[in-house]
Design a protein around this nucleic acid. Structure first.
Lengths: 354, 354
DNA sequence: ATATATTGCGCAATCGGTTGCGCAATATTT
DNA sequence: AAATATTGCGCAACCGATTGCGCAATATAT
């Protein structure tokens, strides 16, 4: 059990020198003679000295702690984002503390405050779905802790934000389908309270207006509960016999849509083409691999962490609005539809045995 | 930018009382009069006092920090496990620091040491695939920091371990298939250096010997690189025309296997039945939903965190070996095969249009 | 030989809090 | 009225390190 830890003082006593000298010897301070340094290092080794960063940082006024608050853990995007953040954070000798707000603004507020108690050097925040304003972040501003909002965010001119260009991504996805001859596209979107959803939808709409294609409200699925998706999807197919393509806004919506298509016997891309905005993992284990606009969680995480560390170390609080580029990854889920092709026709295409 | 933070001393000065009194008033110490407490609390409020836990914990000799070291972030299991850990950790007013060892023993060693520098109150460790012994954990033992090994681990009588009964799970999965008439089962396993792989394989073997079924080496796939799975799978199908069922040891192996089956036109469960050991998420968005032995990451995380916090707070270092029960979740991926049924026959079954 | 630099180290303050103990003022008991 | 108990607060040490400054001993320059 807990053997009392050896401290600088213990080493000093043992060697009959001052704590100051021990501290400096270990820090390789030029004032200390080579001989003393060696004695100290040996003693530290033998006595099994373990530095206490808490004592050190108390003095230093920073903590080398970076906090990340996510609304929840899911299997898409968040893990790869955490992976990316942590890579950079560890490389720069910071540590990452992870909190989850459970999509509750109350929790989020509490956690933000907690970050100040811990003296986090910086905070990375993926907003909860309940969050409607950014007042609770002011406390961070007051004590000079930089914050970055990422992925799920709301409009702000005060805080640095890192996102993809959601509107453009929505537009590109829909346009890609249209370029392949699909004129009746179904959009599967998430909770409309989230900026990410409304922006992607906006882009989806814009793609339609740019091509002067009609867009019925029944072509837009707003999914709040995944369990309701099946019914919504069936209704859409019923309402639009000419439906030939689907755009899923996120990985989670994608996998569920993909599943439901399979379960109703709708084949991709023979019967219906599929595109999504994705981290890139799910599309590779869905058959056929899904064409998507890639939005790498790892990259988002890495870039965000870099920027935050920059803000911390240069004490800058200039607000930025960074948009990460998405790249189109063409896989096998989109079929080209020539003029006059009918969904029914596509359906009769013989599927090879392998 | 960083306005210097208000400290206890500032409040004391402002109110003309001692730091001691301020500290006690804020802590609701019985020695302090109600009136003083109110004055202090008001002042703290007005002056925007933010406690500094680093100062506090320095004295208190603990940090309320729990460290988690994972080999890498993937989308399966780890995220839900982190979610479960964090739920319990936050409820108990600890914070979770997450590190990734990138499956490197060198990194793992470094990170374990780093945990001592940070004075973590406890460490949760998912071993890297390179880790062959537990020597590097002794430093934790020396300074009295409790550790729990979870999920991926190696045999030890010294450290508390939380796993599922991997051997039994492997046996159950195979037995389930056999109970449904499958006599030629393919097992898809991961890196054999990992205990998790070798144990599950052991159970798989035992199921065969229990029923005196032959088990060819070519029925066992040892996957180290996911990119090689396709070839291995094809080879197995070629070697065993009577192959009628597959057991995938993990979610990751499952989704890739599922994908490859779909891409070669092998239908589940008509052509081949499928079972896996899984966290339970992937099976629900694969079509058909995959029957599996459930091994919930969230539950593992929660139980582990509870146990660790218990060890921390009761200063206990009794070693435990906890096995979490898996539960069979029967979904649609296993077909019953009656005596004499051939795979070829199953293949010709007409697939309904929806 | 004297004045000046350099080398190597320690004193003491500091970071932001917590806590054992003592003490004066007031309240209660005998 | 004297003895005792209680209340409310402050002194000072402490947690484990870092750091500005001073100082003695030695080395170098004049």
């Amino acid at each position: 059990m807990a053997g009392k830890r050896v401290t600088l003082k213990d080493i000093a006593k043992q060697l009959g020198i001052s704590m100051t000298t021990v501290s400096r010897a270990l820090a390789d301070h030029p004032d200390i003679s080579a001989e003393t340094k060696e004695r100290v290092r040996d003693a530290a080794q033998v006595m099994n000295y373990i530095p206490n960063y808490r004592g050190r940082y108390l003095r230093a006024k920073h903590s080398r702690l970076i906090a990340l608050i996510v609304p929840e853990m899911n299997m898409f995007f968040i893990p790869s984002m955490i992976g990316g953040i942590n890579r950079v954070v560890q490389q720069n000798d910071y540590s990452l503390i992870v909190f989850q707000s459970d999509n509750s603004i109350i929790q989020e507020r509490r956690l933000v405050e907690y970050c100040t108690h811990l003296s986090a050097d910086g905070v990375l925040l993926v907003l909860s779905s309940e969050t409607a304003d950014l007042q609770h972040l002011e406390i961070l501003h007051e004590v000079g802790i930089p914050v970055i909002l990422l992925d799920k965010t709301i409009d702000t001119i005060k805080y640095t934000t890192i996102t993809i260009d959601d509107e453009e991504a929505g537009r590109e996805a829909a346009s890609y389908l249209m370029d392949h001859g699909h004129t009746r596209v179904l959009g599967v979107f998430g909770d409309q309270r989230q900026r990410i959803s409304s922006m992607r939808l906006k882009g989806f709409r814009r793609a339609h207006s740019e091509r002067m294609l009609p867009l019925a409200d029944s072509q837009i699925l707003r999914v709040t509960l995944m369990s309701e998706l099946e019914e919504q999807l069936n209704a859409a197919f019923a309402a639009h016999p000419d439906l030939s393509a689907i755009f899923a806004m996120t990985d989670e919506l994608l996998v569920h849509t993909h599943y439901l298509l399979a379960s109703r016997g709708t084949r991709v891309p023979d019967d219906v083409s599929l595109i999504s905005i994705s981290d890139g993992q799910a599309p590779t284990f869905l058959y056929p691999n899904v064409t998507h606009l890639r939005h790498s969680g790892g990259e988002v995480g890495e870039r965000t962490a870099h920027i935050l560390i920059g803000m911390i170390e240069h004490n800058s609080d200039a607000m930025m609005d960074v948009r990460i580029r998405t790249t189109l990854v063409e896989l096998g889920s989109v079929a080209t539809r020539t003029e006059g092709t009918k969904r029914r026709a596509a359906r009769q295409v013989q599927r090879g045995p392998r």
